[in-house]
Design a protein around this nucleic acid. Sequence first.
DNA 1: ACAACATATGAACATCTATTCATATGTTGT
DNA 2: ACAACATATGAATAGATGTTCATATGTTGT
Lengths: 107, 107
Amino acid sequence: MRAEVENLSSSEDIVQLADMFRLMGDASRLSIILVCLKGPTSVGDIAQRLGLSASLVSHHLRLLRAARVLRAERRGKQMFYCAADDHIECVIGDMVAHIGEPTEETD
Amino acid sequence: MRAEVENLSSSEDIVQLADMFRLMGDASRLSIILVCLKGPTSVGDIAQRLGLSASLVSHHLRLLRAARVLRAERRGKQMFYCAADDHIECVIGDMVAHIGEPTEETD
DNA sequence: ACAACATATGAACATCTATTCATATGTTGT
DNA sequence: ACAACATATGAATAGATGTTCATATGTTGT
């Protein structure tokens, strides 16, 4: 087992980790993250592409920014959001791989 | 961007992915997963180690098994649970790395 | 068959959370 | 300063979810 995972014992660490997963565990937020992975995108663009209200997107963006999943940058009157680092993409990629894993028969 | 992540477009895929993250986004469930990553563990053991009721652990295990995060194996009257594949550990490892990432000053 | 143990399940409840609506803040051009 | 636009924020609400309690199912030994 990877050392980083092995050494997870304190309940604070686990809560923090769970908070991150819960943040990605909503289809609207996850969609927002996926859009932002493609490149810096304005709030209005995100809302339009996903068919969500600008208000809802803004609420979600606040959480994602607070958790440093995304970071914001102002350009004129618009705000552009993009991925804060590339671990998020790894996390998603691994999870996609898990879902694609063939089912075991021993159930 | 990784091809697996790039090609995520259908909303069904995104919902399925979000469901996986939401499943890991609870401290109790995440703790259960972490225990099971160390090796096959019985329901009673999990409950005792984490200080949770056997009933609650069983409820969570049903969800985790349904999502093929964990798989079950009977030994006598006990049920032992362990990780279904090793993608889950990767996902957690990447997320730990994200959390450990130094904060940007541009906020 | 019965008792003892381990796990699973269903209903009920309190708490959390995503979404909407209304409103505020901030920015650019005239 | 004002209007027009973009984003952010706060309150309210309907629906989801984690936990508990009681009970059922399944397994092993006598």
